[in-house]
Nucleic acid binder design. Structure first.
Lengths: 137, 137
DNA sequence: CTGACTGCAAACGTTTTGCACGGTA
DNA sequence: TACCGTGCAAAACGTTTGCAGTCAG
């Protein structure tokens, strides 16, 4: 069970019911975009504003409570922050899968080939999920 | 030397001076965004419209003459399409480097772990280029 | 009590669209 | 000539901002 208030305090953020609910929703719905989040929030906060959702997402991105995943040809989705990992997006149904892939070797290769000092990497695969692969196109 | 008209015809696109110039500019300026492209086009096409730039980029993306690179916290940039490759973006000066990295092993790992059938991958590193690393912050 | 957050409305930047005209094939 | 592309203006879209009122600490 996630201690959401504690998480927010740890990052020196004010604990508001809206923020708690955003984190709560993202803990059970990884990879949803702003509109989906907004729609879900309406259940408990009928008068919540989209601006509040954006402001809180941005605040929590800066505090690294959340992270953002950029999806090709779709709106960014959000997830609770955790160690670096890759994503696979189904081009048919847009389902997103997380994948713990060790990029150590690739990092090394990239650093030696580029002479850059690297901080982070974003690896997103596109493909078809098993369900969409098996169904006729 | 690039046969631009031939490239366009091959993809069954009408050859217009604007399209030729867009491809021409991208052949010497990889990784520029819409605004930069628009500004460069103004030299030879003082009355070109931004809508035309967008329409042509979209058309040529669909025909796979161009490809789009999504840059975190910055506008998308464009390049002439070629084999899959990775990118490194400098977080200080935004310079973009292309890197031919073999993702075969990673693809295999991702496929077996996910059961997805994968089509493509986007790998973008963030870091500091040698110039920005050496200069005082 | 003070500062931070919320909700509303308006503003903003980017991209797309509709349309009349002009160019390509 | 028939169709497609261009340029303009307006619309659409996603996100941010300013502000007055409210809530958290």
């Amino acid at each position: 069970m996630l201690n959401i208030a504690g998480l927010l305090k740890e990052k020196k953020l004010t604990v508001t019911p809206q923020r708690v609910e955003i984190v709560n929703l993202l803990s059970t719905n990884r990879h949803i975009n702003v509109d989906e989040l907004y729609a879900l929030l309406h259940t408990n906060f009928p008068s919540i504003s989209l601006a509040t959702v954006y402001k809180n997402i941005n605040t929590m991105l800066e505090s690294e409570i959340l992270s953002e995943v950029q999806i090709f040809n779709a709106k960014n989705v959000y997830e609770l922050a955790k160690e670096e990992h890759s994503h696979i997006v189904c081009t048919s149904c847009n389902e997103i899968l997380e994948l713990p892939i060790d990029l150590q070797v690739i990092y090394k290769e990239a650093e030696s080939k580029s002479a850059y000092s690297l901080k982070s990497a974003s690896l997103v695969f596109s493909g078809k999920c098993p369900r969409c692969s098996s169904s006729k196109v």
